[in-house]
Design a protein around this nucleic acid. Structure first.
Lengths: 313, 313
DNA sequence: TCTTGACCTCGAACGCGTTCGAGACCGTAA
DNA sequence: TTACGGTCTCGAACGCGTTCGAGGTCAAGA
């Protein structure tokens, strides 16, 4: 493999002059530039990006930690992140975590080892304090409310919209509400926002038995419906954590020959549109764009993107 | 930032011995290992991944070129790729292309400049011959039939299943078939497979007027239906290029108050399942896994994954 | 005429981990 | 006792581009 020293030697100039030619910098005479360019072309020389990254001390890589690849939240977020990364000439490195603490730690170590300039956690299993500890090694951005961690964040401002949704249900006469969540309230900011909104509207924390957690897919929605039925619980309405999941819930009730509660979905997915399901759009693409911008600028900001309740579609 | 030389100096050992300790290699006495480890811990030293990549001449990065992030084909493929990459301890770098030739060239140059060990093209705008030219700089894998390019490939074997689908239509009495495609037959292997299957079943190439191209989203499907209606063309059945798109077609006809032709979708999406749409599953996750394995092993193979026609769901 | 300041080019140090060849030491088999 | 082989450690070269300080040239302004 030919390197910059080969080019310099053959062209009869110093390495630094060659470097200035390939980086299109000033202070190279036209003749010299042409002579060096000729050798570069003849030798089919291209600078080594890894060496360049090493000497510049920067990789232009942003690691994106995501628990699943096939969930709409992450898909939309990734779309926003890659769009913004592309515009800023950064590279997006996908890091699967499955909420595994060891893996997340490995990725944080990657930041320490300079594999990435910045890390975006679309979600996380480790405590925020541990993420915060790694900020000394590089920029870290999370996609949820940072609490008291001080970590820069871009996230969907869910609570207000969840409140809107629950108020909507209440004013339409739905009193007994079931809540579906991807993760337990104790560990998930999203689930907390749901619980907080519930408290605002109904004056108390949601009882544990009205919440079903670990609901991710349509099949989980179906399972949740069966769980409710098996327990003999009755609900007027259910706030599902995605449109697909709401569809699953609907199927679960139908399969059991029971009346389907009123449903509200989330994510504004095609499936919900098909059955005219009320939903909440969190604008995750925008969240992703903002997260990436924070990550590369190093700004210590918190950006909340407003969600929207969509009751007619 | 502390480096391996600092550790060596403070520990009183040579750099190579320290290297052997942090890489858990043999030929270090227990006492030495402990002494060095102590200094490593005290200094909070972590090796620099970029320097390591440079000296090893390998990055463990695989670039994945994809035209869109929000299309099910790519989402499923990415899922397979990240799954396999994770298992092999490789990193997936997402490269948006929008079929832009300049961008694709930039990514190929990235291979030449050692930014990636390998490149997977989930789709491409550049001619295969140009991709083939860059194989001298690193492993390249495509996700379609490689024709005579010799490029290693993992792809969905579509033609046979398209034939099955068209035979299914023919035997059920549907004679006049419309074909929806994401890209023109001239540039897309997928569209070619559709046309080839059509010829096998109906004995002739599909007439240009029965094909609508640039159909990517549900809205495009709706538009395609309107195009057909505007032209006064009648079809007994339409082979759409995704379930979502088929739904769009259905809407287009319904909005115009016209009878909806029999529809077959693709990708086995949730939307199709909801309306019991016949579909074709291409197993793109598997394709992605195989593509990544080819990319990192450097094997010069072509792997075709069989698709499946699903007529009852 | 002297100074100042672009302009051009060079050499060497720097960023940092890996690896190979060599040397020293010790135990065991011949 | 000589040899061979394994263990342990070191120094230096290597992978490769960037950048800073220095030095030389030349023209314009004082």
């Amino acid at each position: 493999m030919t390197n910059i020293r080969d080019v310099a030697k053959i062209a009869g100039y110093s390495v630094s002059t060659v470097s200035r030619v390939i980086n299109q910098q000033n202070y190279v005479s036209t003749a010299t530039r042409a002579a060096i360019q000729k050798v570069v072309d003849e030798l089919d020389y291209a600078p080594n990006d890894v060496a360049r990254d090493l000497s510049r001390g920067k990789t232009f890589n942003v690691g994106v930690v995501l628990p699943h690849e096939d969930h709409p939240y992450f898909t939309q977020l990734i779309h926003g992140i890659t769009t913004a990364a592309f515009a800023a000439k950064y590279h997006v490195v996908l890091l699967s975590s499955r909420y595994d603490a060891d893996l997340e730690l490995q990725y944080l170590e990657g930041l320490r080892r300079k594999a990435y300039d910045a890390l975006i956690f679309t979600s996380h299993g480790l405590p925020l304090s541990q993420l915060a500890h790694y900020r000394q090694y590089g920029s870290i951005v999370i996609c949820e409310h940072p609490r008291d961690s001080g970590i820069p964040a871009a996230y969907a401002h869910r609570r207000t919209t969840y409140r809107d949704a629950l108020i909507y249900l209440k004013t339409h006469g739905y009193q007994r509400i079931g809540l579906l969540m991807s993760r337990p309230i104790a560990v998930s900011a999203t689930s907390q926002a749901t619980a907080d909104a519930y408290q605002m509207v109904f004056g108390q924390r949601p009882a544990p038995e009205i919440c079903v957690t670990d609901v991710i897919t349509l099949a989980d929605g179906e399972r949740a419906a069966k769980t409710y039925l098996k327990r003999g619980q009755h609900f007027d309405a259910i706030l599902a954590n995605s449109d697909d999941i709401a569809i699953g819930v609907s199927r679960g009730y139908q399969a059991a020959g029971e009346a389907v509660p009123f449903l509200i979905g989330q994510e504004h997915q095609l499936s919900g549109e098909l059955v005219h399901l009320p939903t909440i759009d969190h604008y995750f693409k925008t969240v992703g764009e903002r997260a990436l911008q924070l990550a590369i600028s190093g700004e210590k900001k918190t950006i909340a993107i407003n969600s929207r309740l969509i009751t007619e579609q």
